[in-house]
Design a protein around this nucleic acid. Structure first.
Lengths: 242, 242
DNA sequence: CGCGGCATTGATCCTGATCAAGCCCCGTGG
DNA sequence: CCACGGGGCTTGATCAGGATCAATGCCGCG
């Protein structure tokens, strides 16, 4: 394949060619010139599970696109109680323009690869490129919807429904070939039991019990504590409280 | 006062002159010409407590600025369990561009006055005026922060902390002369006990018991079931789990 | 006066938290 | 090869915070 003849790649930085963020993510709002400018100051890198991306220790300053992996956003009460307030998957945009992050920590839940840019680059582009801001608004609206859905789960669902809801959520984001009508899904949990508990407002023991109950009821299978198989997604959805 | 000489009002529609949304709300992003265009198709009106603004019954199509009053956003599970996922106060913007509202209902919690525009007007202006979209992004980011704060409350706080957190929230939004350092606040609850329960993921009885406990502990006073006086805000903040 | 909508209060129940072993899987070092 | 240890997970026993069920109180209003 001769790159210079490929109209779709014309003028697009090598760094960005295969990047999902260019299609579904915020970079989709940029024209080739802007991509080139952005690519000059951007860098790909990987971090391992547990690394802190935003928070007290600013491991990664500025902003990033998530290229792969799962990032968890947590809030901590002064006495140590924790709540995960969001999960981000590729190609989500990570970082908050126009505002110092509130008391929020972003941590890699799995190994994660990122494409990062300095704060100034993005903020400059936001000013000049309304399309970029529009994408950001769309992502923010989506996150707001997700946060509100989760508020219902936290406030009004039982432990069993919470765990089932969590599995539904992961299935839709993670299963490589998830097809809602296929009726089944297989995926690896990106979180430990303790993290799931922090996401659901439960304890580790309750999460464990509910998972074994789902297994006992043949709604899911569990391999190696991590790999989940859902035979019939509809049964799981039902257990999630619809 | 001779209006035409007032430079700040020059060319500004009468409808908008005194409107708070023009300062702190989304309309602040518009220049006088745009305000005029918007005012042509906008209309002020009031609705009474309980009216449904967005949802199955679209009482108000399009978008609105809240001029006064409190609007609650609720989600309902298929079996009837309800969760309030947000409260909106003047001069918040109400309505969701670029997307059919998810399964979300907006209802007047108190009597509310609104300034409404048809959907097409706003969407057109959003396309042409990046400043407007920027304001919208800012409000959305703020709502996202609030939603995430509330997730911590729902997932990790005790009933007592939840009720105290709710009072803190209302105090900061409602008390006409709330000053964080004054140390005290007086306000009317905009929600019934049942609504507070739906906001906090509790039952009506638990809300009632926690309120009487706060009263017994001299953290608050209650008049007429509605009017709350907080002598010492710091003590309340402490009860909210910091 | 009596009714209906909210709110408080009390008694009891039950879901999920807490406390406490013990297991499984793996990596490490003897 | 096995012993050891530790992290993550499961399982069991008990406890307790809120839910649920039920009665009663408080007002405003027709």
């Amino acid at each position: 394949m001769i790159e210079r003849l490929d109209i779709h790649s014309a003028g697009i930085p090598v760094l960005c060619r295969a990047c999902e963020a260019r299609h579904r993510g915020v970079c989709g709002a940029l024209d080739p010139d802007q991509l080139v400018a952005l690519a000059k100051t951007s860098s790909k890198h990987r971090v391992t599970s547990g690394a802190e991306l935003i928070g007290d220790m600013e491991a990664v300053d500025g902003f990033s696109n998530i290229l792969s992996g799962v990032v968890k956003l947590t809030k901590t009460l002064s006495d140590g109680r924790e709540q995960i307030v969001g999960l981000q998957f590729a190609p989500d945009f990570l970082g908050r323009p126009f505002r110092e992050e509130s008391a929020l920590t972003a941590q890699a839940a799995t190994d994660v690869s990122l494409c990062s840019f300095p704060r100034a680059t993005i903020e400059g582009m936001l000013k000049r490129s309304p399309g970029l801001e529009h994408r950001l608004l769309e992502q923010t609206l989506r996150e707001l919807d997700e946060a509100r859905d989760w508020m219902v789960t936290l406030g009004r669902k039982t432990a069993g429904e919470k765990v089932a809801s969590f599995l539904m959520l992961i299935a839709t984001y993670i299963d490589p070939e998830f097809d809602p009508r296929s009726g089944s899904a297989v995926f690896d949990l990106p979180l430990t039991r303790a993290e799931i508990a922090d996401f659901l407002g439960l304890t580790i023991e309750t999460v464990s019990r509910q998972l074994t109950k789902l297994k006992a009821d043949k709604v899911i299978e569990i391999e190696n504590n991590r790999r989940i198989t859902v035979e019939n997604i509809e049964r799981l959805r039902f257990r999630a409280g619809l």
